[in-house]
């Protein structure tokens, strides 16, 4: 009995240690974002300090943060929306007509290093005068979102019995109408998973936006990165910017935790 208690206490200590390891960068970021520059450069690092909002005021005041926020949202939203339009029928087709080679083809977009198409894009988009436009950014971010949508949704469609469409077809529907009226309305969980995940990946993307966007369509990660380059020493401001950019992804994750876990793990678990 006594041995068990010791065992339990040890277990919870380990769990708390793991949690702290995971959390400490977030906590450090958060606390630094409320520190004055003096408190940040204090040695040894200060754990107790008077919190200040001046970093957030600076970030949201001096920088065009709202604009970048909107850019990120528009690019992510459009890329995810269009990926659903292209991806849902493709995923359905892969699932119902067992098109394995097609699945691999689309998976390739997830596996290949982004830079191997980024360089040609740069050249092509420059020629077409599409640099620093939503068109270029949305197209590039779709290449992030589309494989995620197809990958998750084809697995989801596999879990829906084919008799549902067959029944609808006997009831008088065409196959495409059955897909629209029967299959899509019951695919909510799968769609939430793929939308959340692909939006977060688009939101976090740095490389594509770094090359294809300039002032007009700059997204948040680029803004945060530039903030560091311009204001090398203003750590408080940088941390406030980091908090601002991570917050939406983290909030989304908290709301849709179950779906995100499923989306991230299923590729490996389903085999």
């Amino acid at each position: 009995m006594k041995k068990n208690v010791v065992h339990e206490i040890l277990f919870y200590l380990v769990v708390i240690f793991i949690s702290l390891m995971v959390l400490f960068p977030f906590l450090w970021m958060l606390s630094s974002s409320f520190k004055t520059q003096t408190d940040i450069i204090a040695w040894p690092p200060k754990l107790l300090f008077t919190p200040t909002l001046q970093n957030y005021e600076k970030v949201f005041g001096e920088q065009d943060f709202l604009k970048y926020f909107i850019n990120s949202t528009v690019v992510g939203g459009l890329a995810v929306g269009l990926s659903l339009v292209l991806g849902l029928p493709a995923a359905y087709s892969i699932s119902r007509f067992t098109q394995r080679r097609l699945a691999l083809f689309i998976l390739l977009a997830r596996l290949m290093p982004g830079i191997s198409f980024l360089m040609p894009w740069y050249i092509i988009f420059s020629r077409l005068d599409l640099m620093d436009t939503y068109v270029a950014l949305v197209l590039s971010h779709m290449l992030i979102a589309l494989p995620i949508v197809v990958w998750i949704m084809s697995a989801y469609f596999n879990s829906i019995p084919v008799e549902l469409e067959e029944s609808a077809m006997v009831d008088g529907a065409t196959r495409q109408y059955a897909f629209w009226a029967i299959i899509l309305p019951m695919s909510g969980p799968g769609i939430i998973t793929s939308v959340t995940l692909s939006f977060i990946f688009s939101w976090n993307n740095f490389m594509f936006s770094q090359v294809l966007s300039m002032e007009k369509t700059k997204t948040l990660p680029i803004a945060v990165y530039n903030f560091v380059s311009y204001a090398e020493v203003d750590w408080g401001g940088v941390m406030a910017a980091a908090v601002a950019i991570m917050a939406p992804a983290i909030v989304l994750t908290m709301i849709f935790q179950k779906f995100v876990v499923k989306g991230l793990t299923m590729g490996a678990v389903k085999g």
Partner: peptide, 27 residues
């Protein structure tokens, strides 16, 4: 499990910057 999820969705650029502060030799 929620905590474990957070690093996965954290913006890598921002993560890098936070670790730069963490690694800063003087502060």
């Amino acid at each position: 499990k929620l905590l474990l999820l957070l690093p996965l969705v954290a913006t890598p650029v921002a993560v890098g910057i936070v670790f730069n502060l963490f690694y800063d030799p003087t502060i």
